[in-house]
């Protein structure tokens, strides 16, 4: 039986805009096990990054409700000093943009070393340097002794992202949160970085939350996938099920709108309307309903819930049973690649 590492229950993260609170993450429940990659997929503004930041406790001015339990202990609202003992030691985060995630005025060695220094006070300066150099080696940076004394602007984007990863894994965290770790990188570098993250997972037996908008990356990396739309998880399943039998209308639409390098499509599916902004989120009913007006309103639930369709496969709202693509676009349904 897989060992539960992170369990989120009914998490709601709201931001104050003027005099009202708006939930960027709403009613999110999920689990991450050891040695497992859970991918969270969605478009910009769906709340996937807000979710990652909530887990790490990086929102300084947000209201958080619900439960995030890490190794059985709730970490919502715990004291900053307790949180700081977990962050960087038990959980690490890889940021999206390697150009901005490093302090421009600090040497690479010091930036990685800081993660060690904060959680392992016994290490001497030389021991710390040795360990940083080992880490640089581990993430595949050539000439680590030299890079140790360099500044971020002297490294390429791919190398900087390796430094960010080295920092995140410095203390071998049990949980690694990767927020679009390869979005800013070229495709050959992306494949190297993804391999690196996979290897690290095997090495350290860690659980990984991989935030991405790239379905290819999901297919390559994930064990399980959660699809987010407008602050909520709309579907969650293991990766093969999700790619072969997607159920939620949003998931299916998303799959059909991606141009695919492996097979030819005449026309891409277009999701009607636009992603609602935080202040314009539909607060009641099925949040995706406004974007499929050809589906009868009766199909939706009044308070959409997650339904377990098969063991481990959850879908929000019962509208999936009635969903079909609009007539005029004559699109074939996507059945994954068989």
């Amino acid at each position: 039986m897989a060992e539960k590492l992170l369990e989120i229950k009914n998490l709601k993260t709201s931001f104050r805009i003027k005099d009202d609170y708006f939930a960027a993450v709403d009613d999110v429940s999920l689990t991450v096990n050891k040695n497992e990659v859970l991918a969270i997929v969605g478009e910009s503004g769906c709340g996937k990054s807000a979710l990652a930041f909530s887990i790490m406790g990086l929102h300084t001015r947000a209201k958080m409700e619900g439960n995030i339990s890490f190794k059985g202990e709730n970490i919502v609202g715990i004291s900053p000093s307790k949180l700081n003992k977990l962050r960087g030691k038990n959980m690490g985060m890889i940021f999206q943009d390697p150009l901005t995630a490093l302090n421009p005025l600090m040497e690479i060695g010091d930036q990685i070393g800081e993660a060690l220094l904060l959680h392992n006070k016994e290490l001497s300066k030389t021991q710390r340097k040795e360990k940083v150099i080992k880490l640089l080696n581990k993430v595949g940076i050539p000439r680590p002794e030299y890079v140790y004394e360099q500044f971020p602007h002297e490294l390429s984007g791919g190398m900087r992202q390796r430094v960010v990863i080295a920092t995140a894994i410095a203390n071998e965290p049990e949980l690694l949160i990767a927020d679009e770790p390869t979005t800013a990188l070229d495709v050959t570098i992306q494949s190297q970085i993804l391999d690196l993250i996979k290897d690290l997972k095997e090495d350290m037996d860690s659980g990984i939350v991989l935030i991405t908008h790239d379905l290819g990356v999901v297919a390559e990396m994930a064990d399980r996938v959660a699809v987010m739309y407008a602050g909520q998880i709309v579907e969650i399943a293991d990766v093969t099920t999700l790619f072969e039998e997607p159920l939620h209308p949003y998931t299916r639409s998303l799959f059909n709108s991606v141009p695919n390098a492996k097979e030819a499509q005449d026309r891409l599916h277009v999701i009607q309307g636009i992603v609602p902004s935080l202040q314009n989120l539909p607060r009641i009913g099925c949040r995706f309903a406004p974007r499929m007006p050809w589906i009868d309103g009766e199909a939706h639930e009044e308070h959409p819930e997650m339904h377990e369709v098969k063991p481990g496969h959850y879908v929000r709202c019962s509208c999936y049973k009635h969903f079909h693509f609009p007539e005029e676009s004559k699109e074939e349904e996507h059945h994954g690649v068989s």
Partner: peptide
């Protein structure tokens, strides 16, 4: 800036984040 978030995610306390970064 992102690197401030990154410093926090390393477990740096607020005072360290301010003083060092």
């Amino acid at each position: 800036k992102d690197f401030i978030l990154m410093a926090r995610s390393k477990g740096a306390s607020e005072s360290r984040v301010y003083n060092r970064h």
